[in-house]
Computed example of a mutant assay.
Amino acid sequence: MSDLRFVDVCAGAGGLSLGLEQAGFEPALLLDKKDVACETLRVNRPAWRVVEADLLDFSPSRHQEIYDADLLAAGLPRVRSGASVAQGGSDAELRLLEATVYLAHAVQPQALVIENVPGLVDAPDYEAVRSFIREELHHLGYRFRWIVLNAADFGVPQDRRQGVLVALREKHFDAFRPPEPTAGEYLSVGQALRQSMAARGWRDVDRWAERAHGVAPTLVGGSDRRGGADLGPTGTKKAWARMGVDGNTVADDVPGPDFVWDPEAGRDGMVRITTEQAALLQGFPPDWRFAGRKTARYRQIGHASPPPVGRALGLAVRAALGGPAAGVAGYTPTS
């Protein structure tokens, strides 16, 4: 089992796929319905098999390469609380979750990983969804476990809690161990962004980095139906303001040498982060490029699964499946 393969649906900008690659998995197919996300994937990994299609319309029989995949992975749009399969699954997010579970019928992977909101793990409002998943997976012969992971525990400078379903074939399930935190201490926003903030000679960078001593609040990608890019709802923007960051917009560039940082003076005295810096806060490597205009780039980043979390999940699943760990730390990405 030296070459474990995965299928990633709703792949977005590739955060989960990149993490799985770092864990030693090879991609069989990546699926996303947005052209800009598919362009991002192809720019960074030309050798990956990327299919631009809606999961709800996806026909597995036309893509034979998925049938020998060991892992089916999905970082899905957030399912709303109270969504009910019994009511016909009218919510688009719920229908995508259902489609992922049904795709497992066709792919028959050894393992299934679905990432979504933390509430999906145990909140009463999601019981109907969990009941549907439980019945379907038991029917297919899987055992499963719900876990909540925080990206900050894996070296990502962001408080980002993720609810994760990990299902495995009966013969592998008892060998599965949830990922253990890899970060001895949290990486702060100031530590993560100091070098990039200083790139144009900003004189106040050290004073700002000292103030930005905590992890970032959860980045929110927002909806395509909204206006331009910002860092999230009101509470999130207040958290950014305490770090001296204006969360109402995303910058085109980092501050120049003469920018006066004076957060007490209001938004004009606050620094703003760029899309490239938002990607660093999600744990993407600096050389990962995002297609599209600024708002499209930021939304891809905000919706992504942090690659370090994907790597931790991939290593945990790989160990349960019996895949060798040798050489994973110094992986060589496919190009």
Rank of each mutant, 00 (worst) to 15 (best):
I147K: 02
L187T: 14
Q87S: 13
G163A: 08
A291G: 01
G256Q: 07
G228R: 02
S59R: 14
E136N: 13
E39L: 13
V107I: 15
V85E: 12
G190Y: 06
L97R: 00
F173Q: 00
L112T: 03
G314R: 05
T295V: 11
E264N: 09
S17C: 05
Q108M: 10
D262M: 14
I147S: 04
N150R: 11
A152H: 05
L55Q: 06
A104M: 08
G227N: 09
L120V: 07
F132I: 06
D246M: 02
E39Y: 08
K33C: 11
D35F: 10
G15A: 01
R226G: 09
G269H: 09
F154H: 04
D32I: 00
E39S: 15
V317M: 04
E65V: 15
G327S: 11
Y67I: 07
T332P: 00
H105M: 15
E264S: 14
G184A: 12
R78P: 01
I114H: 01
R80S: 14
G244R: 02
G141V: 05
E127C: 13
T100F: 06
W208C: 06
V328L: 11
A128K: 05
A111Y: 07
A326I: 09
D204W: 11
H213C: 14
E264Y: 06
R299Q: 07
I147H: 02
P307L: 10
V309R: 01
V250P: 02
V107T: 08
L112Y: 03
V148M: 11
V7C: 10
K33A: 11
D54V: 09
M1T: 11
V164S: 04
V260F: 10
V254I: 10
R161S: 14
P233E: 10
D246V: 00
G323W: 00
V121R: 05
L31G: 02
R289I: 13
S84V: 00
D32T: 01
P124I: 09
A152Y: 01
A175W: 07
W146D: 00
A209S: 11
R78V: 07
Q110V: 08
W48P: 03
Y102D: 15
S223F: 11
R299P: 02
R200C: 08
P181G: 03
L56P: 02
G221S: 05
R160E: 01
R62Q: 15
V166C: 04
V50P: 06
E93H: 10
F132M: 12
G302W: 00
A111F: 05
T182M: 06
R203L: 12
M243H: 02
P179E: 04
K171L: 09
A74C: 13
D3F: 09
V250Y: 09
